[in-house]
C-alpha cells in the first residue's frame, strides 16, 4: 500500500526556494500563506550551513487530527492528511499541535481575524469532486488524481526534495547515501552527489566545487 511521504536531503538543498514558489503557483496559494518553506541553520558558516524544505509531513499519527475539535481531518487511503474546509472553524489548535508549523491561516478580515486553515495537501486536493474547480479553489491542484506527484518535489532542481511512496523514496535515498563519501569532514559536491558511477571513489578534500 502506498504511503505518501516527503524526504528532504539537507546535503543537497541549496535554499533556492523553488519548491516554495512552485507550490504557491501550482495551488494558487494566497498571500500570507506558505504551505512550504525552506529553513536554514548555521547560515553563512562554511560546511555547517544546512537547509531543509518543510511542509506538512503527512504524519501517520497526526497531532493536528488528534486535537481538532470539529474533527475535520482525515487520512486518505494513500496516507495523505487532508481536511474539510467547510468544517474548519479556524481555531488554530492544529497550528499549536503541529511540530512542523504546517497549518497556515489566511488573514480573512480586519483585526487579525483567522480564516480557515490551509496546508500542504501533497497536491491531492480535498473532499470536493476530484479535479473540479471547487476543489482547486479550496485546496489547490489534485496532481495525484492526474497520476502525478507534488510539484515541489518533481521540480526540485537538485533533487533534494523527494516525494512519493515512502518505500520508493527511501530506496532512492538509500542508494544516494551509499554512493556518497563517509566521514564528518566530507561535504560539498562529493557528499551531495557522489561519484557518477557506482563503486567510484568520492571527491576528496571537501569544499564546494
Amino acid at each position: 500500500m502506498a504511503r505518501m511521504k516527503f524526504l528532504c536531503d539537507a546535503e543537497r538543498c541549496i535554499e533556492c526556494n523553488g519548491c516554495v514558489t512552485a507550490c504557491k503557483n501550482e495551488n494558487d496559494v494566497p498571500w500570507g500563506v506558505n504551505r512550504r518553506r525552506v529553513v536554514t541553520v548555521n547560515d553563512g558558516v562554511m560546511g555547517a550551513e544546512k537547509s531543509i524544505s518543510v511542509a506538512c509531513m503527512h504524519c501517520s499519527d497526526a497531532p493536528c487530527m488528534a486535537v481538532c475539535p470539529v474533527d475535520c481531518f482525515y487520512h486518505t487511503s494513500d496516507g495523505v492528511v487532508l481536511h474539510d474546509k467547510d468544517l474548519c472553524i479556524g481555531c488554530g489548535y492544529c497550528f499549536y499541535a503541529c511540530p512542523f508549523g504546517a497549518p497556515q491561516f489566511p488573514q480573512a478580515g480586519a483585526f487579525g481575524m483567522r480564516g480557515k486553515m490551509d496546508k500542504c495537501t501533497f497536491c491531492s486536493g480535498g473532499p470536493e469532486p476530484d479535479r473540479s474547480e471547487a476543489e482547486f479553489k479550496k485546496y489547490g491542484r489534485n496532481r495525484l488524481a492526474e497520476g502525478k506527484l507534488p510539484l515541489c518535489a518533481e521540480m526540485c532542481s537538485t533533487k533534494a526534495l523527494l516525494g512519493g511512496d515512502g518505500d520508493v523514496i527511501a530506496d532512492i535515498y538509500r542508494e544516494r547515501v551509499t554512493r556518497r563519501g563517509k566521514g564528518s569532514e566530507v561535504w560539498g559536491w562529493g557528499t551531495a552527489y557522489g561519484p557518477g558511477k557506482e563503486g567510484a571513489k568520492p571527491a576528496t578534500g571537501g569544499g564546494k566545487s
Binding site: A66, D84, K148
Partner: peptide, 26 residues
C-alpha cells in the same frame, strides 16, 4: 476519546480516468 472524521467523503485518486492529454496511464 478519538474523534471521527465529520466531513464530506473523498474519492481516491485512482477512481479518476487519466487525463486525455497526459502521459500517465492507468
Amino acid at each position: 476519546k478519538q474523534g471521527k472524521y465529520q466531513g464530506k467523503p473523498d474519492t481516491p485518486p485512482w477512481d479518476n480516468a487519466p487525463l486525455a492529454y497526459g502521459d500517465a496511464k492507468w
